[in-house]
Design a protein around this nucleic acid. Sequence first.
DNA 1: TTGTAGGCGTTATCAC
DNA 2: GTGATAACGCCTACAA
Lengths: 348, 348
Amino acid sequence: MWADKQQREPLSDASDGPRRRATIHDVAQLAGVSRQTVSRAVNDKGEIDPATKERVLEAARLLDYRPSRFARGLVRKGTVTAGLVIPDLMNPFFPEVAAGVLEAAEQRGWQVVVWDTRTDGVREREALDVLSHQADAVVGYFKNEDEVLARHIGGIPIVLLERGPQQTRFAAVGIDAAAGLEQGIAHLVRTGHRRIGMLDGDRIGAPGPRREAFLAEVRRHGLPVDESWIVLCSGGHSVASGETAMEQLLDKRPDMTAVFGFNDLIAVGAMRAARRRGRQVPDDLAVLGFDGLSLGELVEPALTTLHIDKRRLGRLAVEQVARLRAGEEPLSGAHAWVQPQLVVRDSA
Amino acid sequence: MWADKQQREPLSDASDGPRRRATIHDVAQLAGVSRQTVSRAVNDKGEIDPATKERVLEAARLLDYRPSRFARGLVRKGTVTAGLVIPDLMNPFFPEVAAGVLEAAEQRGWQVVVWDTRTDGVREREALDVLSHQADAVVGYFKNEDEVLARHIGGIPIVLLERGPQQTRFAAVGIDAAAGLEQGIAHLVRTGHRRIGMLDGDRIGAPGPRREAFLAEVRRHGLPVDESWIVLCSGGHSVASGETAMEQLLDKRPDMTAVFGFNDLIAVGAMRAARRRGRQVPDDLAVLGFDGLSLGELVEPALTTLHIDKRRLGRLAVEQVARLRAGEEPLSGAHAWVQPQLVVRDSA
DNA sequence: TTGTAGGCGTTATCAC
DNA sequence: GTGATAACGCCTACAA
């Protein structure tokens, strides 16, 4: 069986084109030692003569030898790779979540392979198809339904970001929208507003938790509510879509005195549109955001918002993964929730 | 030799704790077929009786079997993993570059594992230590010197972001700061400015290309230049550090009428500090940024800046990696450079 | 349609 | 100190 190996094409320089990568065997041959000895040299084990070690390393250098991560992974367990699926890296919210994930992963010695799905359901599935083969677990944002995810996740642990228990059967880490809106609407009411609109995010299917929480709170305060107070932002959660939606809402509800934006980007868009229409913020129209992007401090007037600890969200997700991997029960309820915090600035 | 395998602990449910992961062999045993047949079923090959296939898949499901990516990678070549090293995900510049990298990588069917070094040289090296083992190539931002990088990259291809040929011996993708500053300073001069300051980024060691280009252009126009016109932003390329630095510069050079910020974040900080000091922007003081973050359109006044196609930067980097891997010469000179584009808004 | 044999590149174990 | 041998888990080729 040794003979076989001898026969394999000897990694010649003669053949051009991207030639076969050197293996431990090639190095051993060139250095005139056994594969095991090469391994010892390369991995800095003791039990080896300094002279041979040097000779082996020289051979390795010559052949540009690098151990195969696959062969290594096969034999040494312990390399953990997590997949992170993000809908839109261009939205400042997600890099911050990602930073939290990366930070927690680094602490555990995990690697993270990142996918940007650009809010595309198809790409989401492709990401899962790959990650289910290449990663040990996945955390991320998905708009596909549980059932679809299940079909593509191939049995590896998955943690959904910003999904409540009632919205998924997978482990999840969520945002307590209800608690947030309670603070937010209370603030608007306290400052005298009775007619509050909302610029919702563009969710497919059922309305999301933010809208539901908004409706619940507005009702609780006995304020007018129906569909006429809400406009959906189509075309992404961006400033631009916020502007467009705000124009519509202003047309539908000229009597509105305050508006809640699905996120800060949309809220900023709302401010811009309102001012372009000649409405002063916050005097003629108060604007409340959701997310707490640092961007909000920079615009004028500075954005009042429900701030979320996005890094923590990411770290929590990694923690959930760790539990899943350990066979433990994932955190649930309040432990898997991040609480928004009202930050009052100038826009409301 | 078969017997050996038979003897291994039979993946019992009895033992608690995280039990050994099922292998193809376990599935074969449970389904009463050969490993090969399992492979056929799992990989959806033809040549298999639908009935056996179903039986095998059921067994696989039962055992929660998932093929080892290591064993697979060992035998099927072609999985490419690139490492992406970013200094600060919180700075909106980098997610956009990352998006470009991810996009190009996805098109090639590569995976990307991401590291955030938080501008820490030590973490940079750690990232390289891991990636040199786990990735097939690396692209990223590094402040460590070539020599240090070489020591940690372990021979795999590396592409440096925003380094010119004279700054590194590795393949690189840069920004043509000179071309950018030429437009920028010309604009300031055209609008009547003669006393222009700069808020430089906090580079260790030699001044970076942006400062050099700034100095060259200012000199070319015969304007006053010396160290008194430049302040270094310590503590990161952030709005806050820009504010602090601007205060200092304003103290040193109260006669200054325009300022160039190392990047948009710093420039925004400059605007804020200036206004706090009672200076109107752009009337009392013009501010020019560098990067072209979308953030710049949102602040007031909107930031005039040297816009960079950051996605393209990322895509280019991936292209460089591809060349390196193919054994081709990396792109150099203008082909590996991204050209800044002056975008005139209200701040200058 | 199914099974056998062998190799992918590495490390651990145990001799020498 | 060094080497032979046997895994690691999977897939391809070939045989039955």
